[in-house]
Amino acid sequence: MDSIRKRARELLEKNTVKVVIGYGVGSDNTVRAIFVRRPEGVEELIFDETCVQNLAVYLLKNEIKQIGKLCIIANISALRTILQLASEHQIHEEELLCLSVTPNGELLEFTGFKDIENYISSCNRDLPDKESEMIKKLEKMSVDERWQFWMNHLSRCIKCYACRSACPMCYCTRCQVEYNQPQWITVEATLMGNFEWQITRTMHLAGRCVNCGECARACPEDIPINLLNYKTVLTVKEKYNISAGTNANIDSVMSSFESDDKENFIR
């Protein structure tokens, strides 16, 4: 923690960066995102295993971008997000500097995407055990049981789009749910609209989701929508052996192909 504060102070004092996005203590001892713009503010920065939020979601916000060069305290999810956003031409190397801490407390400073790629290749990118188990359980169910499972959950969706706001990959200027030529997805929170929204959200994140789990944490109705993304992460890994957020210079899974992509259902 001290090493992060020390380095952040240096960066701000030397004016190398204009702002440091990091974790701080919120009300009721929760962890929240803080934006440090003055050297003395670095004392508020914390970094430990409770810092799970994917701070990369702030990188594309206009309010942040206009401040100038920034430094982000990045956990593994955030680092992968940065690589994925770079591959989608949303952020550029010179715009940011990343600080992170290894599990044994060593400070890491990444100046280029190549550094991040090298570090990520040695990190564990597997899905959390709890979610992996849940996906296996769902896969063992009958189709009708799965349908019922999701209907029970999706009937609670209030279409607040917190899942979308929390997702660092949902950066579209206009989301497909706001498209009305035609109105693909109903505006009000109907069961069908909720279902179609989740299909859309998952399809749009296919091959791009870095399984940070931010969508499910943001959901006020505790709908396990991250399972849909995780399932697709597994599909993409199994079929194409690609994990999102590992390479800053790669075509997305859905905008590339192999002429011998394998499937067993096309007649």
């Binding site: 996906i135 769902l138 896969e139 189709v143 009708d144 049981e145 799965r146 349908w147 019922q148 499972f149 999701w150 209907m151 279902f195 989740q198 299909i199 998952t202 399809m203 296919a206 091959g207 849909l228 399932k231 697709t232 599909t235 993409v236 079929k239 194409y240 899974v253 859905m254 905008s255 590339s256 192909f257 192999e258 002429s259 992509d261 499937e263 259902f265 096309i266 007649r267």
Partner: peptide, 29 residues
């Protein structure tokens, strides 16, 4: 058709996971 095939592979897995009946979807060349 190669791009379409990728889309179908991912889509079919997803809707199956959501409990839709994929036997009602027929893909062919």
């Amino acid at each position: 058709n190669f791009h379409a095939r990728r889309r179908w592979i991912v889509f079919r897995e997803l809707v199956d996971f959501l409990g839709m009946d994929v036997n009602r979807l027929c893909f062919s060349w």
